[in-house]
Nucleic acid binder design. Sequence first.
DNA 1: TCGCTTGCTGAACGATCGTATAACAAGCGC
DNA 2: GCGCTTGTTATACGATCGTTCAGCAAGCGA
Lengths: 201, 201
Amino acid sequence: MTSQPAFRRVEPDARRASLIEACARVLAREGAAGASVRAIALEAGVSPGLVGHHFGGVDALIAATYAQVEAQVSAALDAAVAAAGPDPRARLNAYVSANLLPPIADNALLSTWIAFWSLVRARPEIARLHDEQYGRFRAGLEALLAEAGVPSPALRRTAIAATALVDGLWLELCLSPHTFARGEAAQIAREGLAGLTSTGR
Amino acid sequence: MTSQPAFRRVEPDARRASLIEACARVLAREGAAGASVRAIALEAGVSPGLVGHHFGGVDALIAATYAQVEAQVSAALDAAVAAAGPDPRARLNAYVSANLLPPIADNALLSTWIAFWSLVRARPEIARLHDEQYGRFRAGLEALLAEAGVPSPALRRTAIAATALVDGLWLELCLSPHTFARGEAAQIAREGLAGLTSTGR
DNA sequence: TCGCTTGCTGAACGATCGTATAACAAGCGC
DNA sequence: GCGCTTGTTATACGATCGTTCAGCAAGCGA
């Protein structure tokens, strides 16, 4: 009888990806407070030492997870805009409401994101990542607003307001999911965006 | 030579208040992860055992701190509305923009609030407090929106959108304070509110 | 089949966590 | 001035935290 291997060797990139996914799941399930090295390693089915081996420390793993989740969100937004066709207004609406519809408005993803927010003030590395992410999101929004005819002077403020609207809806969707449904949030975001752009001067 | 007392006896209510204030300061400075019993006790200048003695556990202290901070914010909002005079539109504007001006838009208060958010998913008690707080805020907003002439069918959605706008601006003000100034945030909120209510049907 | 590279394990370390508890002492009532 | 109440301290406990590291073993190449 041949005993099966006690563990499988995986190439570094694949193992890192597996740890990142496990970290995201733990963050979603237990919040930032529960994202310990041991909990993440258990979730990934590996030993705690592997986290230090591949990332050097748990902070770097969390930062990598942030970057990974953000890349997924960004890709989903780009896809939504591309699928919306050529009409500028439709592209703008798609960009905004995609944040509040699947696959972005997933409970696990929302929880992951708020766990990151809670780390921003304590970890300068996370804060830097957040600033970059926020900047990219707002830049994308400003470009779509410009396409949709929002005049240049109002661009910055309209983009900030729309970003805040989306973030606020996203936040409440995460904190108390029973207040309103995902579909309603997307509709509120679309209506709100219409209001924000109609009076933007 | 008379040696001075090693500590002062304080009546329970006053000591509890002192611990709550210390908890808020620690949450603001170090985030939820740093709000340990020992850190809070050190901040308050007492021994760690006092937290258990007066609150039973650190969770109850954090919940009490949440309730206390919320009461302060609520009082500041009421005061802002009262100071705005009788005009419905002015009262509505005061309610919204007061969230983004001193004393509410204080860095410590903002950090405290986001630390609470990060605890909502992990602690059901905190989640319940959040739901109550959010409900009160939205109810207050709906009343002011009704005064300002927003028709009843649009009331709920408009209030949700305005709350999200304020929360989003508040969040970004906390996460990266250099993106925009407090005064600009309040102005964006006022303009955004005008847009939200003008198209609300 | 054997050796070598290296991904991986698992135990151990010191620090810090929340909580419980026995002893102490501040300060009021008498 | 003195005892009593009780707010407060200090310590101890077990659990869990992040990190380190010596050694095992998986699986490829020869």
